[in-house]
Amino acid sequence: MTKRYAALLRGINVGGHKKVPMARLRTLLEGLGYDGVGTHLQSGNAAFTAGAADEDALAAAIGRAIEKEFGFAVDVLVRDGAYLKAVADACPFPAAELEPKQLHVTYFSAPVDPARFASVDRAEFLPEDFALGDRALYLYAPDGLGRSKLGEKLSRSALNRGMIATSRNWNTVTRLVEMTHD
């Protein structure tokens, strides 16, 4: 049995660092034996079909192949289409009423302990807000992520220590759901 997956690469093609051209990423994924490979934008989003497998094992294989091909390590998360759809469907904010730049999802490599974020004084950042989901954090930033003080606070390494975390705006969240739909 095969499944559709998305590979989320963290921190590539940002400011000219860790350049990974999407055409080469597609070729790399095909070389790993994955089918139906497609990419979205230049920020490290790829969808592919593979035999049902452990997501962490797929991520590790992709990470090793990227390091071998490009000469640098990249954090990779792999999630199947059903998970990506469940995250989008569980959004606690009114996504249909918001501009896509106002809503973001940070995907984590492990379940998120709410105690990690207990020190964040939510009232200090209003109207910005966040909510935790299954290995995900939803961020509502009405002025966009670039101006978000809450987003800056939430991205600090102390809150995310020991986990891979990578964020996507709502347009990309919904596009990944589309790309991984069976």
Rank of each mutant, 00 (worst) to 15 (best):
L32G: 05
L145F: 13
L139K: 01
H17E: 10
M179E: 05
A165Y: 11
Y140W: 11
P21C: 10
V78N: 03
F108H: 15
V76K: 04
G146A: 04
R161Q: 15
E67G: 06
V87F: 01
E30I: 04
D113H: 03
N13T: 10
A158W: 10
K19E: 13
D143A: 11
G71L: 05
F72H: 01
D75P: 05
A6K: 09
A86R: 14
L29I: 13
I164K: 10
L28W: 07
Y83S: 11
S157D: 15
G44C: 06
H40I: 09
P21T: 12
Y5A: 00
A23S: 14
V177E: 07
L154R: 11
L29M: 07
S148D: 04
M22E: 06
Y5N: 03
R116T: 02
A61H: 08
D56P: 05
G71I: 11
S119Y: 07
V177K: 06
P92W: 05
L84A: 02
T49H: 08
G15W: 04
P114D: 00
G151F: 06
A158N: 11
T180A: 01
P21F: 13
P142I: 13
D89T: 03
A47S: 14
P127H: 00
V76F: 07
V37Q: 02
D35R: 15
K85Y: 11
F130N: 08
G31S: 09
N169M: 05
V78A: 01
A60T: 11
T174P: 09
R24M: 14
A46L: 04
Y83H: 15
V76N: 02
A82G: 08
E124P: 01
L176E: 03
